[in-house]
Design a protein around this nucleic acid. Structure first.
Lengths: 372, 372
DNA sequence: AGGAAAAGTTGAAACGATTCAACGCGACGC
DNA sequence: GCGTCGCGTTGAATCGTTTCAACTTTTCCT
């Protein structure tokens, strides 16, 4: 039988309320009573029942975290940071993994509300998420992470800026023929990256024709489709991938096909996941400020939770700036120049360049793919 | 004001207990009452307070998961599998990250107990963990994951077997001079891998001299120390790293130094983290059965939880077999043979082999490093 | 029609904590 | 000596559920 505050009180020969006061230091106790309570607690190995306390206090000191998955390095990092910060602040993390299913996500949020969490940190998995709509039903503070939601608290990277950073980097390196590996925009983030990238290129008088964009679900497979782009004429001398996973997929294909990075082709990713630093050469990428995102989201939510009694803080959409990590996978355009095939000194095991596909050759012939 | 079962009852014109029966389908209700209760619930947007229910039922349907960290791919995978399985089984996951601190781990376990979790899944972070000792104080079922604990429920990979698999693979490929990158055994797992590896090599009449073992904290840095091994004479033709991260560290150094994998050197890792498949060539490694570990641990714990009322299941230590994934990073020993420097056709950018260090030359000269 | 069984509903007592108002009591001031 | 104050302590109510025994109403059988 587990010890309760009552059993402790009985053993110590005091009232339950006295034990409670001892535990919470909410009233002064005489040294004698304190001691006997202390002993009773030790004797019974008593531990307060936080569930019961929560019921009475109407506050659980727990925060629900809903995240699409946790094995992807990006989300994993964010989840880790949030758990850490929450623990430091005295909150327990209730973890839910939505596995990118909007239905599951919704039911998880509902479940968390039922559990009386004090707040929710949500990285929603798809623009179709219905959480935002049903939000009025949810009387719990909620902060959206890595997503921008109109009129809601949210913390997000400036994806547009990130795209621009990547674009500027490649353009100033002299690249003129650039390929794009675009994840299907399940959420707006990816679309913003692409837009930022293109807007910045325009400043350099560059434009990316549709043929130079490979689109697909944002995962490793998409990276492999870089082979499509390599068949184009002129062949791209640089690639921007909308995240590092895609970049790594492309990387693999490139190396297997005998390309040298960055000599033959430059490549830029997005996210700066841990592996990227350890490729040879390391991947140039737009780094998301993981720690800041997680930390800021927790801070914002905790403020909201604690402001529950008083007034709410002003509506706040936090947008954090990413930074460009220039590493070894990008290099200035070699004198061969844009539009030329890469020079003859290919690595030994290079496969012959496959014949141009109809599509690419047509497009390539009909108009100059890049202005200027 | 949040709706309670009482407010619902009042609105529906019935007793609170009736509403409860409606919710739990624990007594037959007339169609009329059911309907009015239903409507009242909808009108008030009532959601049951799971905290209160737990208090009454003395069962929280929540499981504490304590894990050293979550960003490392191995632990991340396991955590993900466990969360998923738990959710399917109707349990909420309370996540705690110990950050490899035994003190933190202990206080997290204590906290979870206070929260009345129904059970705990623990990947403890260090052999010094004091959880096992204080276990008698803990009246909650607990399953140790990826660790073996005497007389406790646990689920673990057969690390010894894993080591043997790696050893046999390299030996049958003809390698005779083999280097070892040994993580400091913070937990026994690593030591067992090394032991299994050596035991298997002995069957082939091979033995690894101390000079061919690089030891250190099991992380990327350790991998970089492969340079020490490369200065030995004879130079190892194969490397076994006690996990994939270490192997990747070594890999990076090797590639940077101009070695070709597996032509110049074979390398075997342990864990089979996601990245390993995507190196070029992909890494041969001993795959831990992640999914099985996580799934089995959850299954075992849930059994324990549900057996709480009845008798406990027999003491069980589940040991799961790892499998060797033979990929591109290992190859048969080339005719140059053991003990010879790798052949002259090094890649273009190979750095000159550094002069032998005093230590290695002395050792190398004093006795044959490998029997047979 | 009468009684028993079945069906539907309910009040009150938990679960384990917190908290507020009140109480006993010695000390103090006048 | 008496009223007051403050300290230490406590009883009872409460948080939102579930559940058991009991109660009322209906149904069924003979």
């Amino acid at each position: 039988m587990k010890a309760t505050i009552r059993s402790v009180a009985k053993l110590a020969g005091v009232a339950p309320s006295t034990v409670s006061h001892y535990l919470n230091q909410t009233a002064p106790l005489s040294a004698a009573t304190a001691k006997s309570v202390e002993e009773a607690i030790a004797a019974l190995n008593y531990r307060v029942n936080l569930g019961a306390r929560s019921l009475r206090l109407r506050k659980t000191n727990s925060i629900g975290v809903v995240i699409p998955n946790i094995t992807s390095p990006f989300f994993g990092e964010i989840a880790a940071v949030m758990e850490n910060r929450l623990w430091e602040r005295g909150f327990q993390t209730l973890l839910c993994i939505s596995e990118r299913s909007p239905e599951r996500e919704l039911s998880q949020v509902a479940h968390l509300v039922s559990r009386q969490v004090d707040g929710i940190l949500l990285v929603y998995c798809s623009q179709k998420s219905r959480v935002a709509e049903t939000l009025s039903d949810i009387s719990v503070p909620i902060v959206f992470v890595d997503r921008r939601v109109p009129d809601q608290y949210s913390v997000c990277t400036d994806n547009f800026l990130g795209g621009r950073l990547a674009g500027r980097h490649l353009a100033t390196l002299g690249h003129r023929v650039i390929g794009l590996l675009c994840g299907e925009p399940s959420v707006e983030n990816v679309a913003e990256r692409i837009q930022g990238f293109q807007v910045e290129l325009q400043r350099f008088g560059l434009e990316i024709p549709e043929a130079y964009k490979a689109k697909g679900r944002q995962d490793l497979q998409l990276g492999l489709r870089i082979t499509d782009l390599l068949q184009l004429d002129p062949r791209p001398t640089a690639i921007f991938a909308t995240n590092d996973i895609v970049a790594i997929g492309a990387w693999r294909k490139l190396v297997e096909s005998g390309f040298r990075i960055p000599r033959d082709i430059s490549i830029v990713g997005f996210d700066d996941i841990a592996i990227s630093r350890f490729l040879v050469p390391p991947l140039t990428t737009v780094a998301q400020p993981y720690r800041e995102i997680g930390a800021k989201a927790v801070e914002l939510l905790v403020d909201l939770v604690q402001a529950g009694e008083t007034g709410k803080p002003a509506q706040e959409n936090v947008i954090l700036a990413p930074t460009l990590k220039i590493r070894g996978s990008t290099a200035p355009l070699k004198k061969g120049g844009a539009g030329k095939a890469i020079d003859g000194r290919l690595p030994q095991r290079t496969k012959p360049v496959p014949p141009k596909s109809k599509r690419s050759s047509r497009k390539g012939a009909s108009r100059r793919p890049f202005k200027s």
